[in-house]
């Protein structure tokens, strides 16, 4: 996993509610057997709308995405996280995320920042003009206009993101406990 410390840059102020995984990456793009190359297909149905934010040169290469409630709802496809990572997104800010999506994002070095709707609304307005800074060490989102919003994150996820740790290797260190569980339960 790519370590995450601080990300600064433009934020795409999408703002929509219930952005589901079919919207993030359509099912016709799930036939790949690789993780890379999905960025160009991300948000295909939104990109079909004239004047959409994703094709606005002002947001080209933006590392941050701001959305409404329940971002990433729907399927468990990690292709959604791979597509975001492939288009250069390192942070998604929203009032809430689906559980499966936020896990998938985390495992791909994407930080999901949960902020109250009021803070998200403010950041949506600021992001239309200015870059934002998301700092995982200080756990804050800040803007050049002196906005400063603190967020919370599970300490384990924070540590993994900061260190870029491999979760499977961490779990394999518990092999003795897994064996003991299997013996104890006859599994």
């Amino acid at each position: 996993m790519t370590p995450f410390t601080c990300v600064q840059g433009r934020a795409i102020p999408l703002g929509r509610q219930n952005v589901d995984t079919d919207v993030i990456i359509g099912a016709e793009h799930l036939k790949t057997i690789q993780r890379s190359g999905l960025g160009r297909y991300a948000f295909g149905t939104i990109r079909a709308e004239p004047g959409n934010l994703f094709d606005d040169p002002a947001y080209a290469g933006a590392p941050i995405l701001i959305a409404g409630d329940n971002f990433g709802c729907g399927s468990s496809r990690e292709h959604a996280a791979w597509a975001l990572a492939d288009m250069g997104i390192r942070v998604v800010i929203a009032p809430s995320f689906s559980d499966i999506f936020s896990g998938n994002a985390f495992k791909n070095g994407i930080l999901t920042v949960v902020l109250p709707q009021g803070a998200v609304d403010r950041l949506l307005a600021v992001a239309a003009e200015l870059p934002l800074t998301v700092d995982l060490e200080t756990m804050t989102v800040t803007s050049p206009l002196q906005d400063r919003f603190a967020f919370e994150l599970d300490p384990f996820r924070r540590e993994c993101l900061l260190g870029g740790l491999d979760e499977i290797a961490l779990t394999m260190a518990s092999e003795a406990a897994i064996r003991a569980y299997e013996l104890r339960t006859g599994t």
Partner: peptide, 11 residues
């Protein structure tokens, strides 16, 4: 997700 699929396959 797929990372978890891998995690379950391995552990």
């Amino acid at each position: 997700g797929t990372s978890e699929v891998e995690h379950v396959l391995a552990t």
